[in-house]
Amino acid sequence: MALVAIIDDDADIIEATSLVLKSKGFSVVTANNPNDGYAIVKENNPNLIILDVMMDEPDDGFFLAQKFRREGIKTPILMYTSVSKAIGFQYGSGEMVPVDDFVEKPISPEQLVAKVENLLAKK
């Protein structure tokens, strides 16, 4: 079964996301900061990464995504955003933003599962 890495600094979001994915049969590894997040990806080589855009700094998630891509890690990335509209970031996947899909918090379980399954199927 697929392994999903969840990187978010909000413990409750990690908890909720993990529960939903586990109940659908996914395996989950988690980290609550960019450094640990980098480590779990290197270590576990997950099938999918769920990454929060705003951790300590407003664009920590971006830098981490760029770092993965620079190092040739092609694992699909689903990015969690929370105030993209409010701060005027309008993301679209592309070279500048090397992620595969976005999901705006709060997320409903079905939507999350649908996005995850969709990204895994593409691969």
Binding site: D10, D12, I13, A16, T17, L19, V20, M54, S82, V83, A86, I87, G88, K105, P106, I107, S108, P109
Partner: peptide, 21 residues
């Protein structure tokens, strides 16, 4: 304003996640 929006939304997202589960 955008910082406030983020700070307000973070707990709402967490609670909403739990309630949906």
């Amino acid at each position: 304003v955008s910082m406030v929006a983020h700070e307000l939304k973070t707990p709402v997202a967490a609670v909403s996640g739990f309630l949906k589960i």
